[in-house]
């Protein structure tokens, strides 16, 4: 129990004193995860829309696969990305292992199925609603996709936030592909694992509270920023 209080006071103290180290790893956490989120959304959302509007033979299988991949174990993703990016691996020449880019790649793989699956559910419903109208208007495939994405943007924001939540708290994969290098690839979650390993529970817990606060803040910020054209809505 004392560890818990120590953790809380440690967190408060680190935040108040604007600890340079903390600031750095927090910003890196944000940067890696937001980059992964943008890339993953750019892949997952159009994919989800495409799966909603286009009937093709393997469509159901692809959707089932995406649903299944939502539960992809991050450690395995990390391991596979590691092997691919290692100097002795097929993509070794890129020299990406143990860089933030490698962490972004791993996170993208982990959250694309999640975002695509959640997005597909709402886009599918919206498509059922819009189907007759858009077909009647002779709307092109691409226009269907952009219309759905735009009109479902609130639901898609929720999908993206779910992806963010999974990515920001992820440790298994990014520990493996990032290497937890101080000043280079250390982020909040890997720092927590490290401090726990050193038996410094208070510091680990302090970092944990910062991580939670960060996740909450980003969620609030994205919700707030996403509330455009709110005037005259209802």
């Amino acid at each position: 129990m004392t560890d818990l209080w120590d953790g809380i006071s440690r967190a408060i103290w680190m935040v108040l004193s604007l600890d340079a180290n903390l600031l750095e790893i927090t910003l890196r956490s944000l940067q890696v995860t937001l980059t992964a989120l943008v890339v993953a959304s750019a892949i997952a959302l159009p994919l989800a829309a495409f799966l909603s509007v286009r009937r093709f033979r393997l469509r159901r299988s692809v959707i089932a696969l995406l649903n299944a991949l939502m539960g992809l174990p991050p450690v395995v993703v990390g391991l596979v990305v590691y092997i691919l990016l290692s100097r002795s691996g097929p993509l070794g020449v890129l020299g990406l292992l143990f860089t933030p880019t490698a962490m972004v790649i791993a996170q993208v793989i982990i959250i694309v199925p999640l975002i695509a699956s959640i997005a597909h559910q709402s886009l599918r419903d919206l498509w059922a609603e819009y189907h007759d109208l858009l077909i009647s208007m002779n709307v092109s495939q691409w226009q269907k996709i952009t219309t759905l994405l735009w009109d479902a943007r609130r639901a898609l924001l929720t999908a993206a936030l779910a992806g963010f939540g999974r990515a920001i708290g992820e440790v298994g994969a990014i520990m493996i592909v990032g290497g937890n290098i101080d000043n280079a690839t250390r982020v909040l979650t890997t720092a927590i694992a490290l401090e726990t390993g050193k038996g410094d529970f208070a510091l680990a817990l302090g970092l944990g509270f910062v991580l939670i606060a960060l996740a909450v803040l980003v969620n609030l910020a994205i919700h707030w920023l996403g509330r455009t054209e709110r005037e005259g809505r209802w």
Partner: peptide, 21 residues
């Protein structure tokens, strides 16, 4: 010179050297 440390067990350290990582 910025030395980036990969903190691992000896087994993995040797493996990293072997792979050129």
């Amino acid at each position: 010179l910025e030395v980036q440390l990969l903190v691992v067990g000896t087994g993995q350290a040797l493996k990293l050297g072997q792979a050129g990582d």
